[in-house]
Amino acid sequence: MKTFDSLKGLVLGAEEDALKFFEKGNQAAGTRLRLAMQKAKLLAQSLRVEVSESKKKK
């Protein structure tokens, strides 16, 4: 559950940069958003592995 909470926090934290990029055209916010989404991708993959391992144990 810790990984899920981290993923959720990361996405919620990136919301401000998404608004700045898409509504105001702030290029630096777009760079930060891309970095956050890359981290989210890695966390999502880690979460998938955790779920699969947990299912195998049951």
Rank of each mutant, 00 (worst) to 15 (best):
A18P: 03
F21S: 15
L12E: 15
K2G: 02
L35S: 07
V49C: 03
K58Y: 09
L47S: 00
K58Q: 11
L12R: 14
K20E: 10
K39P: 02
E23K: 15
Q45W: 02
S54W: 05
Q45D: 10
A28C: 03
E50S: 03
L35T: 12
K2E: 05
V11Q: 13
K41Y: 07
M1Q: 09
G25W: 13
L35F: 03
S52H: 04
S52G: 04
K56Y: 10
L12D: 14
K2A: 06
T31I: 09
L43C: 06
K8S: 06
A40F: 00
A36S: 07
A14D: 01
Q45R: 08
L43E: 01
D17K: 13
K2M: 05
M1W: 08
Q38D: 14
V51T: 11
R32P: 04
A36K: 00
E53L: 12
A14K: 02
R34W: 09
K58T: 09
Q45M: 14
L43D: 00
V51F: 10
S6Q: 13
F4M: 00
V49L: 09
G13Q: 11
K55V: 14
L10W: 01
S6I: 07
L7W: 05
A29I: 06
K41S: 05
V11H: 08
S6P: 02
K39Y: 10
T31P: 02
Q27T: 12
N26Y: 06
F22H: 15
T31G: 04
D5S: 05
K57C: 06
S52N: 04
A40R: 00
R34D: 10
A29L: 08
E53P: 02
V11F: 14
E50R: 01
L47G: 00
A28W: 07
F4I: 00
V51I: 15
K8E: 08
A28Y: 07
S6C: 05
S52K: 07
A28M: 09
Q45V: 11
K8I: 07
T3Q: 05
D17C: 05
D17N: 14
M37T: 10
T3S: 03
M1P: 09
K20G: 04
L43W: 02
R32S: 13
K24M: 14
K58D: 07
F21W: 15
K2S: 06
N26P: 04
K20M: 11
A44C: 06
Q38N: 08
D17A: 12
E16K: 11
V49N: 08
Q27V: 11
E23L: 15
V51A: 11
S52L: 13
R32E: 08
E50V: 03
S6R: 09
D17I: 03
K55W: 09
S46F: 01
A44R: 02
Q45N: 11
M37W: 07
L19P: 03
V11C: 13
L33G: 00
F4H: 00
A14Y: 00
E23F: 15
K39R: 13
L43V: 01
K20T: 06
S54N: 10
K55C: 08
T3C: 04
M37I: 11
L47I: 00
F4N: 00
A36N: 05
S46N: 10
L12Q: 14
V11D: 14
G9Y: 02
L12F: 15
K8M: 10
E50Q: 14
